[in-house]
Write a protein that binds this DNA or RNA. Sequence first.
RNA 1: GGCGAGUUGGCGGAGUGGUGACGCAGCGGAUUGCAAAUCCGUGUACAGGAGUUCGAUUCUCCUACUCGCCUCCA
Length: 478
Amino acid sequence: MTEIRLYNTKTRAVEPLEPTVVPGRVGMYVCGPTVYDRAHLGNARPVVVFDVLFRLLRHVYGADNVTYVRNFTDVDDKIIARAAETGRPIDAITAETTQWYLDDMAALGALEPTEMPRATAYIPQMVAMIEALIAKGHAYAAEGHVLFDVRSYAEYGRLSGRSVDDMIAGARVEVAPYKRDPMDFVLWKPSTDDLPGWPSPWGRGRPGWHVECSAMSYALLGKSFDIHGGGNDLMFPHHENEIAQSRCAHPEGDFARIWMHNEMLQVEGKKMSKSLGNFFTVHDLRSQLSGDVMRYVLMSSHYRAPLDWTVSRVEEAKVILSRWLRLNDRFRRASLDIPDSFEPDPAILAALADDLNVPAAFTRMHELTTGNSADTEPERLVQVVGNARFLGFSLGSGTGPDPSCSLEVAVDRVDAMEERLSQMCAEIDAARAEKDFALADSIRARLREVGVDVLTTKDGTRWERNVDFDRDKAETLV
RNA sequence: GGCGAGUUGGCGGAGUGGUGACGCAGCGGAUUGCAAAUCCGUGUACAGGAGUUCGAUUCUCCUACUCGCCUCCA
């Protein structure tokens, strides 16, 4: 069995994944979105990173032996603020945003996690956890709030390498009169009648930011599980607080054994922000780029290194994806299939198992997709398409500015369109035979326009889609 | 101020104690009506300094610079 090695933030070292909580089974929790707005590119990075890991885990341990939990935080002050701004009900905002998120992440080729719990469905579990923390002397109620007592947990700050005293010295903490220590954080806060709230021993209120993840991971994965992931900006305070809550509420468990953090995404060398005008949502980009191109860019540097999203990288990704797509067209033309027994390339598996070295996996893809190997064409095409799919690329089934339509619908539409494309290639051949190059070029230009490459071969003209293929435009040729 | 990450050829980006991936771009060639695609060929890179070593881009220290977190954030 492939040994998977992962960098553990907790120990600052790469270590083997040893699924021993439940032997042979892996539990993974990744912090999901707070649903109040469209997912941006930065939100997409961890989704893709942990999707690659999820795919690897499913391959190594078997799909039924991997539980991947990614939550939706649907109670939060940002959501309340959004409701106030727009005058819309909170439920409508969270439901809509949740669906947007699922659509956008699917476009990026991300598999749905095994479990996608919503925070509001776990309020009783949160209350129970808070009660346990109070009972064990790790939390206290004050003025309708319940706060976690950071001084009661000696290891507080260990994950992020900070000490409580240092952080207080940093002095950028909110000092509320009801806090025993400035670093204490809120587990529960009171809600006025106009705010979302649930009954609790401390009055009507709502959970603080961090408890939901502790409560949901405990409910779905238990007191110990293998992997916890998220962006490295969550390391402090979010993950630190999760650890404190979970370890104090369930001291008999380990909570997460391996902590993984992806580095931040930047845009053209700067932090993505609305004020800099370099802020992009996945939804925005989907009108210009295929999900595969976005996925490729997001996978093109190691997850623990910063990723700079730039125009030139997008262009480079298009070149690569076009090549893969052309090979995929040949694969389809040859009526090939990926056999059930298909095994991903050993070099790709080894690269991914080595702390998700996706760039090294791409190197192998480059070897498979370039160079002269005409004598092994069918085999090679199966390798290319099989491995690309393993890495989460849809190769055309989701390509084009409208990747959202279902595969089944797409197949029928594509068949009629493909016939037309072949017909146009025949027209080019006829024109060239009569040396009517102007006509041949004009037909070629029309094909290019919809994102189809025209290949001049000894056996006549052929078409292959490139990454700019636009299904809707191609339909107009029929 | 505290904590952390990083600095590899024009660009992107792996990796290694012993002449140094891979991709994009460029250049040359094949092919082509011209292209595109494809194929073949082509690269004086490891921030600076000191040290360890037979030998360092790879280990150690220092300097410079960049970036992130410490506040909502993936």
